[in-house]
Design a protein around this nucleic acid. Structure first.
Lengths: 247, 247
DNA sequence: CGGCATGTTGAATCTAATCAATCCACGTGG
DNA sequence: CCACGTGGATTGATTAGATTCAACATGCCG
């Protein structure tokens, strides 16, 4: 008899997978039987560090996480932000040694799933395996989009782009609506994700506010003019492969 | 009866997969039976364009290719360079619509493999499926490393990093040795891959030559001082997950 | 041999980084 | 309830790395 918390975690995963393809009854049941270990974590806690050899994957149930790598002289590059429903370290199933770190951004609840359990699930239900693989491919597509930003877009476009991306990802799992979403990251986090300094991020945010494109206060982002921001950032959401789109 | 060219293509793929795991006799035979269509392409030819819905994957047999995306005002971001043995568009197996383009860099020979054939192969031999998945995960790891470069490394480090990466990748498939490898890309290509301008690339290359770290002439790179370049670029090859390492 | 892509160089300019100070909101403990 | 500490945000002044624009050189290919 699974606990309420476990049931909730399974539902989360099912919802995420069903946003792409419909699952059979048997597949849903198999996911619900997945053994989970649920954990509550503080903000800014490493879940996994570069060099680790994890034995389970981590499903985010509440809060945000990010993947990053530290460099010499305190430099940091953040690769991705993760929200409930994400499994940020799915790759550890096939690449035993991790080449980067995973940490919570906010207080968070996560469920750990043994590699063996996930592997068995994918073996028993190849279409679930394909969905998991697909998810890592979308992950890579987002990396590519971030590369474009860091490499070829202005600071303004980069920040606007990230806001649009996170809003749509949150909306897709029901955590955002009406152009309003949580954005519980510091300007330093933003800078380290986008290849900027926090000082410069601050100045660009000031400009965005000045043009009344956004409001960003106490961890909440409001996109005041979606279409204009989209255009200013040259944002095109197809790479996210989401079913539902914003208005 | 497979032609000599087809046999060569299969060998290429087998060698690539066996650089990671050993294949059974049955697996090797299945790969050799894979139906292929071999094509000779000129340099700077698109193999696949953003928005396409490919029906096959592309195995590179000779020459180089790159994945890229064009932006407004003629800006371009190159995501990756590909060498013989690579299947740059494996993701199209699971993401029907392509979100970027793939083009030859040099004259090239490629083998096209129908999605159905690859899917059948992966279904019949799940361990081959896992190897293919694994390959896309390494792809993503390389994207992350490039993100670090573009986001947080100096132009000098970025270029040095790319040289080390390509040398090791080429060495792993027997196309480089003695710190000498082909590097058939223009300074503009380098710039578009690393988030720089060609003018600046040119200046950094001049500095590298001045410090006698490298020689780069007529499409051939010689790394004159491997250890120093490694250190100057803070290069750590673990993310490539290659079996063989340079001295 | 001529033409065009690629590579090289210089000078001026600009974006974003750096360094440093200050401000503000928030939570905590006296 | 207010003083204090702290992390994050904001602002200014200055600098550096990279871009831009423009000219010119080189080398390869037909």
């Amino acid at each position: 008899m699974p606990s309420a918390a476990n049931q909730h975690a399974a539902t989360m995963l099912i919802r995420k997978l069903e946003s792409i393809a419909t699952l059979t009854q048997a597949e849903r049941q198999a996911i619900e039987r997945l053994p989970l270990r649920i954990n509550h974590l503080n903000a800014r806690n490493d879940i996994m560090r570069e060099g680790d050899k994890p034995t389970h994957c981590c499903l985010i149930l509440e809060g945000w996480a990010c993947r990053y790598k530290l460099l010499s002289q305190g430099k940091r590059q953040i690769f991705s932000f993760h929200i409930p429903g994400d499994i940020p370290d799915l790759q550890s199933l096939l690449l035993p040694t991790t080449d980067h770190s995973l940490a919570t951004v906010t207080k968070a609840t996560v469920a750990f799933i043994l590699h063996e359990s996930l592997r068995a699930l994918a073996a028993d239900f190849p279409s679930i395996g394909a969905l998991l693989w697909r998810d890592t491919l979308i992950d890579a597509a987002i990396f590519r989009e971030w590369m474009i930003g860091i490499g070829r877009r202005s600071a303004f476009e980069r920040i606007g782009h990230l806001f649009c991306e996170m809003y749509l990802k949150l909306q897709a799992v029901g955590l955002a609506a009406d152009f309003r979403c949580p954005m519980p990251i510091t300007q330093t986090d933003l800078a380290d994700a986008l290849g900027l300094t926090s000082v410069h991020v601050n100045r660009v945010l000031k400009e965005m506010r000045g043009r009344t494109l956004i409001t960003l206060r106490s961890g909440t982002l409001v996109i005041e003019r979606w279409n204009e921001l989209l255009q200013a950032a040259e944002f095109n959401p197809t790479y996210l492969r989401l079913e539902k789109q914003a208005a």
